[in-house]
């Protein structure tokens, strides 16, 4: 009789674990298949590779037309890191102004900022593309990076505004009495206290930029400029004749940076989602 709740609990745990394994199965399949020789990948649905090989990684890394995946990874890293820095800097500047400073048209501009959060990307796509092509920015990284340096992801501005509002104003006031101007206030008081929100912004900007496929595809067509996502997409031929081993191996590697960041910042990550509703 006393065992029944325990039994129930164990059953529940078993069910949760089974569902969890099912959820992770596609990822595990990807990982396992990347170590199988090409002719065995689709031969069995078993996970464990009967013959273990690293050939796929070697072949895949060769990339396309003489340009290796080291180049693609480097490109993705450059774009992502520059985007992160841009977002952190310009979004926090704007957030500080909205949260702490008084200026004309503040409420109008604030409302505009809120509206842009919900604006679908595709509405801006065509005219932005035209602007960037007139500026001769096609096949450069500028269309991907410059918007981040202009605080274009207003979602993060809102996130930081809410965070700054939680910082007691007494700190600002005493710093002002000590002679700090708003510039010093921003660097010495706000930025150090804003670090948790900045980390959240950095993590999500990195992941979204790394995973971004659509705008990279539109703006980049030269292979030497390709990112990891574009590299993988080019290895893959929907009509069927892909080098599947190489494709899956590179797919695994493409997910490594994101997984690493997630595991490093896990706690921060999940709390960030819970409190802000980030994806």
């Amino acid at each position: 009789m006393a065992n029944r709740p325990n039994l129930f609990k164990a059953g529940k745990h078993l069910l949760i674990i089974a569902c969890g394994l099912l959820m992770l199965y596609p990822v595990m399949w990807l990982l396992a298949s990347s170590f199988k020789p090409n002719n065995l990948i689709f031969a069995s649905s078993g996970l464990w590779p009967k013959t273990f090989t690293l050939d796929n990684y070697v072949n895949g890394w060769k990339g396309l037309q003489g340009i290796t995946f080291s180049r693609f990874f480097l490109n993705s890293a450059v774009i992502s890191v520059l985007s992160v820095i841009g977002n952190i800097l310009t979004c926090s500047l704007a957030a500080y102004a909205f949260a702490r400073l008084e200026f004309r048209f503040k409420s109008v501009l604030f409302a505009c900022m809120l509206v842009t959060i919900m604006l679908p990307y595709h509405v801006l796509l065509i005219p932005q593309y035209i602007i960037f092509s007139k500026l001769d920015w096609i096949n450069t990284y500028l269309p991907l990076i410059v918007p981040k340096w202009l605080a274009h992801d207003s979602f993060f501005i809102l996130l930081m505004i809410q965070f700054i509002r939680g910082i007691p104003r007494e700190l600002d006031e005493s710093a002002t009495i000590d002679g700090c101007g708003s510039g010093q206030l921003y660097f010495r008081i706000i930025i150090p206290l804003l670090v948790p929100a900045l980390i959240t912004t950095a993590i999500f900007t990195f992941i979204w930029t790394w995973d971004d496929f659509f705008s990279q595809m539109i703006y980049l067509s030269e292979i030497k400029l390709f990112t990891v996502q574009l590299g993988i997409r080019s290895l893959y031929d929907p009509s069927g004749d892909s080098d599947w081993g190489a494709l899956l191996a590179m797919s695994v590697l493409s997910l490594v940076p994101i997984m690493t960041i997630f595991l490093l910042f896990q706690k921060h990550f999940l709390e960030g989602i819970a409190t802000t509703g980030l994806k």
Binding site: C91, A94, F103, M113, V123, L124, H152, S154, S182
Partner: peptide, 29 residues
Amino acid sequence: RHGGGTAYLFLLPWLIGFFGLTLGPMLGS
């Protein structure tokens, strides 16, 4: 000061982005 000269300096990147990458393109589109 009351018009918020410094505030606009902080807002400058966002303002350029808002007019150049959002509002302008929307009207353009």
